[in-house]
Amino acid sequence: MTLQEAVLTDRERLVGIHHLDTLIVRNNLALSYQQAGRTDEAITLQIAVLIDCERVLGPEHPDTLTARSNLAVGYREAGRTTEATTLLEAVLTDRERILGPEHPDTLTARNNLATTYADNGRTTEATTLLEAVLTDRERILGPEHPSTLTARNNLASAYSQAGRTAEATALLEAVLTDFERILGPEHPDSITTRNNLAVTRRRAGP
């Protein structure tokens, strides 16, 4: 992260704080803050990046929509689920209109919104949306694409939260087999899925 901060300082000095390359570095640094659990710093930086993207690129530019989506995910990670939901619903509407309903970024927006619905306890809406995301990703990207496997994993988690543990367990077992075969047993996605499967089996009981 220290290296990213140094790169940002250099970019700001050489090309200015509003240059597209600088905005990209600032966005990446915000994501690193988020992954490190520095949520307040991440959100502060993401808000600044979004404001600059809207002013420099326009409110409907794909990079602006990405910045808005990143801020929404930051809100969700910070537990600010109402703000996250409102922003993600707007991002999905814009991406469907500007990029089309089947664009990968649109599918990602739909997935992020569904995950936030699940966090809010809106399991029926989350499940319906995630089933649609999975169907689209299987058709557009193929059944073994990492994004498709992630969608399957997210749907299984929604099933588990909704008490549909048998369906969740069956789906997670299949996803884990695919992740281990395609990405390897020690890949982070394989480890996460293995953990999700263990949690779901505990919920199901003996």
Rank of each mutant, 00 (worst) to 15 (best):
L92W: 05
T127E: 02
L129N: 06
T22W: 00
N27V: 03
D178N: 14
L14T: 15
V7P: 09
R76M: 05
T115H: 02
V91A: 04
G74I: 12
A174S: 12
N27D: 15
A170F: 00
L8G: 09
V73I: 15
N28A: 08
T115K: 06
I182Q: 10
N112C: 07
A132W: 04
T177I: 13
T108V: 13
R203I: 06
L197G: 05
L14I: 15
L65G: 01
D63L: 12
T169N: 07
T108S: 13
E173A: 07
T108R: 04
L129R: 10
T93A: 15
L45E: 07
L23I: 04
L176A: 11
L183V: 10
L29H: 11
L3K: 11
V175G: 06
S147Q: 14
S69G: 14
T150E: 07
P206L: 13
P143R: 11
N153A: 08
T106H: 01
P188Q: 05
E54T: 04
D40E: 15
E96L: 04
L71G: 00
L171V: 07
T85K: 13
T169E: 12
I24N: 13
P185T: 04
T165M: 09
Y117D: 03
V56K: 03
A168Q: 08
R68L: 05
P188G: 01
L88A: 05
G142N: 12
G58S: 05
V199K: 11
T115Y: 02
G16H: 10
I47T: 08
T193R: 02
S69C: 12
T135R: 13
V49Q: 08
E60I: 01
L99D: 08
L14N: 11
Q34H: 13
S147F: 14
R202P: 00
L31T: 12
T81H: 09
V7R: 12
L99S: 07
Y75Q: 02
N154F: 12
A162D: 14
H187D: 10
N196L: 02
L197D: 02
R203A: 14
A30Y: 07
T135A: 15
N153F: 03
A114C: 05
E173P: 07
Y33P: 06
E138Q: 15
E41V: 04
T2Y: 03
Q35R: 14
T86C: 00
A72R: 02
V73P: 05
Q34E: 15
T82F: 09
D94S: 09
S32A: 14
E102M: 01
L8R: 03
H61L: 02
